[in-house]
Structures are given as C-alpha cells and as structure tokens.
Computed example of a mutant assay.
Amino acid sequence: MAKAVRTRKAANAKAADCARASQTATVIDEYLAQLPEPTRAALEKLRETIRAAAPTATETISYQLAAFRHEGMPVAFGAAANHCGFYVMSGTVLQGFRDELALYKTSKGTIRFTPDRPLPSALVKRIVKTRIAENHARLVQRAKRAAARKQPPSE
C-alpha cells in the first residue's frame, strides 16, 4: 500500500508540474523548462521535428499549449499528467494517417503518446506538412471568394 501512495504522490506532483507549465509559460522554452523529465525530452524532440518540417513557422503559446503559426495554426503540443499530446488542429487530417497511428490513442484532432513511446519523426513531419498544405488551401479559397465578391456584376 505504501508503494501505491508513493506512486499516487508522484503522479500528482507530475500533474501539478504540467499544469503549472501550461498556465505560466509565455514562450515554449519556459513551457518546456517547467516540465519533468522524461516528458521534457520527448516534447523537445517533437519540437525539433516540427521545426524541421515547418522552418518558417513561428512559435507561440496558445490555449496553454506550445503551438506553431504558419498561415494559421497547423499544430501544437502539450503535456498532461499521464501522457503527451500532439494537437493537429484539424478534424480531417488524422484520418489519412489512421493505420500509422494504430498504436496511439487518438481523437478527432489529437494524438496522445507517452515519453517512452514517442511519435516517429517521419510521421510527425508528414502530418505537419499536410496541415500546412491544408491551411494554405484554405487561405487560397478565402482569397478567391473575397476576389469574387469584389468584382462588379457583368452586364
């Protein structure tokens, strides 16, 4: 029973660290610095992979998550007490990666993983690039609609 109490206390402390990081950080470096190991290392690797796939994206903290902006917000990541999350900010993208994500818990736009089973870098890069393409296509469509509204009616 003492082991269970120690395990519960450790989990509660980790949850408190993750919550504190998401509430007080203003830049990704601060967010990561407040996380316990090995969560920090897993998310630092994820960050590097995202940067490699989207070198022109800017980093920010949004919705208490470490996020990236490039023609919208393609992806974000964060830590919880018992897992890490990779947030794809899209309800459609993950469907195309269903088979590759079979080993991970997923929802409509979220992939949950643990530091001891991180996401493969090649998969992360493909997901990020897919999201950037999706954001770009959305912006092109908006521009076309706006241009069509500005044109005077033809006689």
Rank of each mutant, 00 (worst) to 15 (best):
55 P>V: 10
56 T>G: 09
56 T>S: 11
57 A>W: 10
57 A>V: 08
58 T>Y: 09
58 T>E: 14
58 T>M: 11
58 T>C: 08
58 T>P: 01
60 T>A: 15
61 I>P: 07
61 I>D: 08
63 Y>E: 06
63 Y>L: 08
64 Q>F: 15
68 F>Q: 09
69 R>M: 14
69 R>Y: 13
70 H>A: 11
75 V>G: 11
76 A>W: 15
77 F>I: 08
78 G>F: 10
79 A>I: 06
80 A>W: 12
81 A>F: 03
81 A>H: 05
82 N>P: 11
82 N>F: 03
82 N>T: 14
83 H>G: 02
83 H>S: 06
84 C>P: 07
84 C>S: 07
84 C>N: 10
85 G>F: 12
85 G>V: 15
85 G>I: 15
86 F>W: 12
86 F>C: 02
87 Y>M: 10
88 V>D: 02
92 T>R: 07
92 T>M: 04
92 T>E: 09
93 V>N: 12
93 V>F: 09
95 Q>E: 12
96 G>H: 13
96 G>I: 11
100 E>P: 01
101 L>D: 01
101 L>C: 03
102 A>I: 01
102 A>T: 07
104 Y>N: 02
104 Y>H: 04
106 T>R: 01
107 S>M: 03
107 S>R: 05
109 G>K: 06
109 G>N: 12
109 G>V: 03
109 G>T: 07
110 T>K: 13
110 T>R: 14
111 I>T: 06
111 I>Y: 05
111 I>G: 07
112 R>A: 11
112 R>D: 08
112 R>E: 07
113 F>S: 00
114 T>D: 09
115 P>H: 01
115 P>V: 01
115 P>W: 00
117 R>Q: 00
117 R>E: 00
119 L>M: 05
119 L>C: 03
119 L>Y: 08
120 P>E: 05
120 P>C: 02
120 P>F: 00
121 S>M: 06
121 S>D: 15
121 S>Q: 10
122 A>F: 00
123 L>K: 05
124 V>W: 01
125 K>N: 04
125 K>L: 04
126 R>F: 01
127 I>T: 10
128 V>F: 06
128 V>L: 08
128 V>P: 07
129 K>S: 12
130 T>Y: 01
130 T>I: 07
131 R>I: 02
131 R>W: 06
131 R>P: 11
132 I>D: 09
132 I>F: 09
133 A>N: 11
134 E>N: 13
134 E>G: 14
134 E>V: 09
135 N>E: 14
135 N>C: 14
136 H>L: 03
136 H>W: 08
136 H>K: 08
136 H>D: 00
136 H>V: 05
137 A>M: 10
137 A>T: 11
137 A>H: 10
138 R>W: 14
138 R>N: 08
138 R>M: 12
139 L>K: 13
139 L>A: 13
140 V>A: 02
140 V>M: 02
141 Q>S: 10
141 Q>D: 13
141 Q>T: 11
141 Q>W: 09
142 R>P: 09
142 R>L: 10
